[in-house]
Nucleic acid binder design. Structure first.
Length: 417
RNA sequence: GUGGCUGUAGCUCAGUUGGUUAGAGCACCUGGUUGUGGCCCAGGUGGUCGCCGGUUCAAGUCCGGUCAGCCACCCCA
């Protein structure tokens, strides 16, 4: 039996990894520009960290976590999202407040795979812990938009909403329940379930039958408390200052229980059903819930896989570097030994150098050099050795000239550098 | 978790109403005379037709199961 990759996982192969590296490089640059610092937390944590923060009733906790027992019987879970581990690390290490942290890496959820949805998926995220200023919300949104635009995405929609807080959310949920109670029989089966579990989720049901009732449903904006209202208004003002376009979607809800007040989502029109590239919001109660002092916070998570998918669908070409600087072709054993040393010296000059390790024909060595995208090829054979010169060929033009062996390193690093 | 579509060389796909050694393009390798790439030409390597079982004299082709991918739902980044 052949061993295959586990369902919902992927190998990111060399021909694609440049894109990933480029995206991660740009992401780091922008995040650092915005004053965020990288943090790395473990891929697995104690299970209660997630079940308590994300919410016992959510799908993530109820049926999508990779939970297992270790050899001492402790219940551990592969991280299904990034915020809870960071809050844990923030509290455990008593990081200075406000803490502006970012992370990137893999996350795990047991879902049915689909394009843009994997069981091992990658996210880039940022969290500002310890600031209740709506400017922080706007800053988080701004950095996300800056990154997406810098990478070349155009077809984006930013949706914003006030999700309410501990004070006003219960009132709104009650109002929703009152409203839908009489219509329960007309709603789809999923919504009947949502009615009991989390009435907020009825609001983004896609079924036509439910839509018409949803349109008439009470809007959360009428139920927000003063603080929630003020926060939303301020965030909008800050976004206006930055000229970031958004639409208010009063029915935007997040799937994780810890979100409060600001909720936002950035979608791409290119993506189909799994169209959320980035999403986030405030979670002003989470830190206290996890045993810390009452601390406001706001964050965002970006789906790297979906980001790449959207870039591909929009036909964006990333400026990734390809090819090597020098390929050394050698003929004969004496030349290949000499060449081996030369390759090393060129590499020490921080050049990308490849040399033939087998004694193939010059023709096939040049074919390989071409395939590797070599800018220059150094040809070294018996003839060159006796004359103490090598041939330097520029692949783009095909021009070649002879260079003294002891001047080669200098000459090439001048040309390439 | 539910429904649907798909599954043939590394990749993209052809394979007639089930019938002899399963094809193409790309990729890969070698060659087109002495030590020179990209184009072109010639030749070559490569497939237990996802896997298991069934129907049949005979299955890549039909049926069932299973696994995987995709689409929608669900969920979410």
């Amino acid at each position: 039996m052949k061993v295959r990759k586990v369902r919902g996982t992927r190998d990111i192969l060399p021909d694609k990894i440049r894109k990933w590296q480029y995206i991660e490089k740009i992401a780091r640059e922008i995040l650092e520009n915005f004053g965020f610092q990288e943090i790395r937390t473990p891929l697995f944590e104690e299970t209660p960290l997630f079940s308590r923060s994300i919410g016992e009733a959510t799908d993530i906790v109820a049926k999508e976590m990779y939970t297992f027992k270790d050899r001492k019987g402790r219940s551990l879970t592969l991280r299904p999202e990034g915020t809870a581990p960071i809050v844990r690390a923030y509290l455990e290490n008593r990081l200075p407040t406000p803490a502006k942290l970012y992370y990137l890496g893999p996350f795990y959820r047991y879902e049915r795979p689909q394009a843009g949805r994997y069981r091992e998926f990658y996210q880039i995220g940022a969290e500002t812990i310890g600031s209740d200023s709506p400017a922080s919300d706007a800053e988080i949104i701004s950095l996300t938009m800056t990154l997406l635009k810098k990478l070349g995405l155009k077809d984006l929609i930013l949706q914003l909403n006030g999700a309410g807080c501990r004070k006003c959310q219960p009132d709104y949920k009650e109002a929703l329940k009152n409203y839908f109670r009489k219509k329960l029989n007309s709603l789809c089966d999923d919504c009947k379930r949502r009615y009991r579990k989390n009435p907020l989720r009825i609001l983004d049901c896609k079924s036509k039958g439910c839509q018409k009732y949803i349109a008439q449903a009470p809007a959360i904006s009428n139920y927000l408390c003063e603080k929630c209202k003020a926060t939303l208004e301020e965030v909008k003002k800050y976004l206006d200052i930055l000229k970031i376009e958004y639409t208010i979607n009063p029915r935007l809800v997040r799937g994780l229980d810890y979100y409060t007040r600001t909720a936002f989502e950035i979608t791409s029109r290119e993506l189909g059903a799994q169209n959320a590239i980035a999403a986030g919001g405030r979670y002003d109660d989470l830190i206290e819930d996890l045993g810390g002092p009452s601390t406001p916070a706001v964050g965002v998570a970006l789906g790297t896989d979906r980001l790449i998918l959207a870039l591909e669908r929009e036909g964006v070409r990333l400026p990734v570097e390809e090819g090597i600087d020098v390929y050394l072709a050698s003929l004969g054993t004496r030349a290949s030994k000499k060449g081996f040393a030369l390759v090393q010296r060129l590499r020490e000059k921080n050049l990308k150098v490849e040399g033939s390790l087998s004694s193939k024909s010059l023709k096939s060595q040049l074919r390989l050099a071409n395939k590797l995208g070599a800018r220059y090829v150094l040809i070294l054979g018996e003839e060159e050795l006796t004359k103490k010169k090598a041939i330097l060929k520029e692949m783009a033009t095909g021009k070649q000239k002879k260079i003294l062996l002891n001047k080669i390193v200098e000459e090439i690093s001048r040309k390439v550098g």
